[in-house]
């Protein structure tokens, strides 16, 4: 008779099965979990670079100023702190290659009214007009200088 207590071979079989399960788990884990998982926290470190890799679409006003002398036009005006792309649209493609992508033509009235049309929810200190009564069909730029509106 073998050593140990009665029916001990059941326990041995169970232990072997358990051991195989643990090995399978460790093997699967080594294959499935990326090497850089858990370096900086409970995530894949490479995900930071994945998020960084998206292309930039808005160039930023510093890029505009490299070619366009915007400082003089905007100086002292009410629009001095407004970013170029707030009105002119996303232009990183134009900044990368000025010949390849031209900035779109702007439609002054709709553009101005987006910010300056009257809306009671706007702060009272923000200049607003009722576009119909104010302009009587004229274009905003007939009277106002878009880059440096005095009033």
């Amino acid at each position: 008779m073998r050593a140990g207590f009665r029916d001990s071979e059941h326990l041995v079989r169970l232990a072997l099965l358990f051991g195989v399960g643990v090995l399978l788990f460790l093997g699967a884990r080594a294959v499935l979990v990326p090497a850089d998982f858990g370096e900086l926290g409970h995530f894949r470190t490479g995900a930071l670079d994945d998020n960084r890799r998206r292309p930039v679409v808005h160039a930023g006003r510093a890029a505009c100023a490299e070619c366009h002398d915007t400082a003089a036009a905007l100086a002292g005006g009410a629009h001095a702190k407004v970013g170029c792309e707030a009105c002119h649209g996303a232009l990183a493609a134009h900044a990368a290659d000025p010949d390849a992508a031209a900035p779109p033509e702007l439609e002054a009235k709709g553009l101005c009214v987006r910010c300056h049309g009257f809306n009671p929810a706007r702060p009272a200190s923000h200049p607003q007009v009722d576009p119909e009564a104010h302009a009587e069909g004229a274009s905003c730029t007939d009277c106002h200088e878009a880059h440096s509106p005095a009033a």
Binding site: R52, H58, G60, R61, G83, A86, A90
Partner: peptide
């Protein structure tokens, strides 16, 4: 890359 967010960039 030293830029601000798109929303902050265009907020007039």
């Amino acid at each position: 890359k030293g830029l601000t967010t798109a929303c902050c960039e265009v907020c007039p």
